[in-house]
Every structure is written in C-alpha cells, then in structure tokens.
C-alpha cells in the first residue's frame, strides 16, 4: 500500500547546521498494516511522515501510495490518499469554523470543490452518526465552533476527519503526546476502533513504548534517519519494554540511549 524507496532528506545542506534527517530509508507497508514508529529525538520519525504527506519534498528516492508515484505531488494533491492527525491539537481543525463545517471540509478531501451547498441535510445526519462513534457527545454540538473544544476533543475530531473519506494511509504523528494521560488513552482507543473498523493502513509515531507494543501488528525503530529495528507478527506481541530498550542500545551502540529514548 505504501512503498518508500531509498528516500533521503538533508536539512540546511552545505551549512554548519547541515542535518541528515533521512538516510536512504526504505519501508514497505502491506494493506491493513498498523505500524508503530519509535525512536529518539532527531531520529527522523516526523520527517519521514512529513515526506510521505508532502510537507517536505525528498532529495532522493521515491514514494508510492497504492501504486501511484506521489513523490512530485504537492501536499494538497496527496491529501487525496492520506489522512493525517498532527501532534498539535490546534493544527488539524479550523478553530473559527463549526464542527459540522470542519467535517464537511474533510468529507470532500480529494474531491473537486464546487459551488454546491457545503452541508446538506443528509450530510448532517451522516456526520451525526460518525460523531457518535467518538462517544464524546459532540453529535449534540454540531454547530459549535471547534475553538471551544478541548485538546482531546479536537484530536478525536481530527481523527474522525482524517478517516471520514477512507484514506489509503493514515498518518498519526504523536497525536496523543499533547494530551493528559486519561484523554490520550481515550483518543488511542478511538484510533484503534476506527483503524480496525475500516481496516486502515496506518503509520503511528509514538514516544510511549508500551503503546508501541500494544497497538499495531508491526513495530519499527528509527535511529539517525534509518530504520534499525523492524519487528512484526508474533514476535512483536511478545515484546517487552526492556527488550525494546536493549534493542535500541544495540542499534545506537550506546548505553545512554536508554535515557534518551525514554525521555524523548
């Protein structure tokens, strides 16, 4: 479903601040794969996601989504295939617009936007049904401005928006990191439910190793712009946090790595 072939990305090339963010990275995802991504600060996790979403262009390599080469497509055109939830709860929704208006925008992702009325009666019924899945009572507040919602509610809404039009790939960039633990757990639960229900191919960055083990069928660990650990299936189910830390130390060749990974 997603084919990342040998992509490289260098920030500020030729300056003292030169930073190789991605180094000949390759990753293939099968339809229905739910991959969790872990790694320390600066490992290139977010850069990888942002290269897939089109926020950054890659210096080398290619990215294919369901057989379509999207490497040269601008961000807004790739959006047709991709659903995204950001780390910052403010980023995924338009605060000054109503809940139903935000949903209407998302429902037309990848479609031509015409002079037809933005929200029809049927649309409204459909959004209502979808909002019920989140179990946050938002279906009763459809015309409320999104700016009035809490961070957790906004993330849940963004998640729903990302999947309202079934995406080929769902990209989750530490989407629960800015939430309190209880809300984070709720949003993760909703994520699991929605991914399973739609059988979505998903890439989820997390800094919580327990979550990385619990969720998904495959786990990758990044270090210095490369994938250094790739575990799936039964092996992944039996992983422990301790084993993960050991794997990370081996990969990075350093003992301090434990703290670095835990703290990041």
């Amino acid at each position: 479903m997603l084919k990342i072939e040998q992509i490289s990305k260098v920030f500020n090339p030729g300056t003292v601040n030169e930073k190789v963010a991605l180094n000949q990275l390759s990753l293939h995802l099968q339809p229905g794969d739910f991959v969790t991504v872990i790694g320390g600060n600066g490992a290139g996790k977010s850069t990888m996601l942002n290269c897939v979403s089109g926020l950054y262009s890659v210096d080398q390599g290619s990215i294919l989504i369901d057989g379509v080469d999207v490497t040269a497509l601008p961000e807004y055109k790739r959006a047709k295939y991709i659903g995204r939830v950001f780390q910052d709860p403010m980023m995924g929704t338009a605060a000054t617009m109503q809940i139903e208006e935000n949903l209407a925008l998302a429902a037309r992702r990848g479609k031509k936007r015409t002079l037809k009325v933005g929200i029809t009666k049927q649309d409204r019924e459909f959004y209502k049904e979808q909002l019920k899945i989140l179990d946050l009572g938002l279906e009763e507040r459809m015309t409320a401005k999104v700016g009035l919602l809490s961070g957790g509610q906004r993330q849940a809404l963004t998640l729903l928006m990302a999947t309202l039009q079934q995406p080929k790939i769902l990209l989750l960039d530490e989407h629960t990191a800015a939430l309190d633990p209880k809300t984070a757990a709720k949003v993760l639960e909703a994520t699991q439910r929605i991914v399973e229900k739609n059988n979505l191919t998903t890439l989820m960055i997390t800094h919580n190793m327990r979550d990385a083990i619990t969720y998904g069928n495959r786990l990758i660990m990044m270090y210095n712009g490369r994938i250094v650990v790739d575990i799936s299936g039964e092996k992944k189910k039996q992983l422990t946090v301790e084993q993960l830390l050991n794997l990370f130390s081996q990969a990075s060749g350093s003992d301090e790595a434990n703290d670095k990974l835990l703290l990041s």
Binding site: Y76, E101, A104, L105, R109
Partner: peptide, 17 residues
C-alpha cells in the same frame, strides 16, 4: 467553505486536499 478554511488554518486545509 474551502476559502474560509484556507484563512482559518492553512495546515488543516492542505491536509484536507
């Protein structure tokens, strides 16, 4: 609506195509 979204949140707008 998409023009309003463009002004309200460019990131979100692009993510929605």
């Amino acid at each position: 609506s998409s023009i309003r979204a463009t002004g309200a949140n460019g990131h979100m707008a692009r993510a929605q195509g």
